[in-house]
Design a protein around this nucleic acid. Structure first.
Lengths: 350, 350
DNA sequence: CTGAAAGCGCTTACAG
DNA sequence: CTGAAAGCGCTTACAG
């Protein structure tokens, strides 16, 4: 078994077909140039290649700058570990589906390591280049990795809006601004005109976008700033029952919660409510600005919006191929979220 | 945009550090050889590399090494379409996990087409060879593709037992023989000594293995052949209510069902039982020989055994790397299934 | 301890 | 229409 026989190269094929290696290259992967080859020569080469079981070496081709019909998927967090699966899997599905539809293969850069902190340039090596281009995914990215990638002019598209100073990135993002603004409108229509906004302090694109949408929604609904409370939560400042009661005393009737990558913000709110003896939605309405994975405890039909995750994956691939084939510059795409009515928001009596 | 500036190479670093390119290679990735370099030289190189933002080009490195550090995953059926996800996803998880653990990347051959009938040798070329080796998956394989692959000496491992005449394949399989035999023993312990065996006619490895396990279990339990009914189901011969009643009249107390890739066999049995007014498990016990995806209708806690799917995926990768690195010949591995008590089998009163 | 050189398998101008 | 040649960025004997 296992002759460990090195696989045939174009030189081998050339020898067998009685032509030069360059000619073999031309017929195997010449594209337009391949048409210059005489039909008889082409047949001889193809036959020799088939007889030897020749396949082109993707690495050599990449090195030279050729294409491999391979798209990469790089994630800054491991996609497969149990707690992240539900969140990331739909993106993966979308990416895989579109990749297949366009006739490409999908390279999962799992070698980056299963540890939490993944780097594109781990050990000073950029693996990504074996692929023709790459879809990037994950919240805990490294901006300098992205800057470096962009500097190298390697085609990539991020799933989710990402800003890197001085670099114009391509991405496919959920329209958090619109979805949040729409949520405010929804609440306003139900009579809620005094709102609290519970956010995480982490100053990230999605945090800023939602807050911008919130402000925009306030303006559209004609709700003045003094009717609003904004509270930023972090490790040191959790939401207390006292604060929640303060809000209610001040006339707040609805809370908008920005979820992080888990349901901790929601849990915090529920705990505060339980402690304060406040019922949802009877005493206060709650709208969740997204659809994070929920643990057993928080599993209820929250009023929320969902991200078009599979579609985001698909569109990222589509844009990546545009970057690749049409030589266009960076592109940004926003996709609509879907509002889900849920049962954590109720109409306010006049 | 697009500085089009190519990223720095070892030549650039060498120039800046005033040494040769070979020396740069030695300190960047020399391994043991790297220790020969004088400390001052090494520092100069490292500094120059840092200043230029040099990163090793993994593609060039692989070319020289002959390996890609890429493992492939090829599936004869699409893995991602909705109806197959639950069944195939755990295999994928296992494969991905192990691939990552060993520091390889995983290439999903999605380009094969999303159609049902996938071929390895599409267009006469074996695309799989872009990877160092490949894990294969799927029930509806093409034996000649496998034979051809083996002939090419390309390293691959099948998930599931597969036989191809004249070829010794590597695979990681569930031990259907043991699991089925154990199920018979379980039934016998509960007093069932007259059994019916409902199988699909399709003459495949897993069908034969389960039947072998059944026979083996009968012998071990001392159940003679004349206490047993075997019925092979196909499109033309479904299980009828009449036949089921015949069985009960003949004293049969338990039925073993071989599921196909869906729950159709189970559905057939349930329908026959419903029509005949036979209750499960009160009137007849039912054991399912596997854990197929169940539709809503059949979702109950069947007495069954489950395949160690993730583990199968992991082990397939491990064996593939043995094939790759240790130059060993074909290997077969059987993994234990897990018996699940369920509620579709009941003890027989003395 | 360091450098010159060959070569991994390909693509792509450039001659003929 | 085809071939000779350069070069992609690296690693690794081999000299010195």
């Amino acid at each position: 078994m296992a002759g460990q026989r090195r696989s045939p190269t174009q030189v081998d094929v050339a020898r067998r077909a009685g032509v030069s290696q360059a000619t073999v290259s031309l017929v195997i992967s010449g594209g337009a140039l391949g048409n210059q080859v005489a039909e008889s020569t082409r047949q001889a080469v193809l036959q020799a290649a088939a007889e030897l079981g020749y396949t082109v070496n993707a690495v050599a081709r990449s090195l030279k700058g050729g294409r491999n019909r391979m798209l990469g998927l790089y994630t800054f967090e491991p996609v497969f570990p149990v707690d992240q699966r539900d969140f990331y899997f739909p993106f993966l599905l979308g990416v895989e589906e579109a990749t297949a539809a366009y006739g490409y293969d999908l390279l999962l850069f799992s070698s980056a390591g299963s540890g939490g902190d993944r780097r594109i340039y781990a050990g000073g090596v950029n693996r990504l280049k074996v692929a023709d281009g790459c879809v990037l995914l994950g919240r805990h990215l490294h901006r300098d990795d992205l800057a470096e990638l962009a500097k190298e002019d390697f085609p990539f598209v991020f799933v989710g809006r990402r800003e890197v100073p001085g670099v114009e990135l391509s991405y496919v993002a959920a329209d958090y601004v619109g979805a949040t603004s729409e949520m405010v409108a929804h609440l306003a229509r139900l009579g809620h005109r005094r709102l609290a906004y519970l956010k995480v302090t982490d100053d990230r694109e999605w945090t800023r976008d939602r807050e911008a949408g919130f402000r925009q929604g306030l303006v559209a609904a004609g709700i003045p700033d003094d009717q609003v409370r904004v509270f930023a939560m972090d490790e040191r400042a959790a939401l207390s029952a006292v604060r929640l009661q303060d809000w209610l005393a001040a006339g707040i009737t609805a809370v908008l919660v920005e979820p992080t990558d888990d349901d901790s913000a929601i849990v915090a709110l529920e705990n505060a409510a339980a402690e304060a003896g406040v019922r949802i939605p009877d005493d206060v309405s709650v709208a969740v600005l997204g659809d994070p994975p929920l643990s057993e405890a928080t599993a209820r039909d929250w009023t929320r919006f969902t991200l078009p995750r599979e579609q985001m994956g698909r569109e990222a691939v589509r844009i990546l191929l545009e970057l690749l084939n049409d030589n266009v510059s960076a592109r940004q795409l926003y996709l609509d979220c879907t509002q889900v009515a849920g049962d954590s928001v109720t109409e306010l009596p006049e």
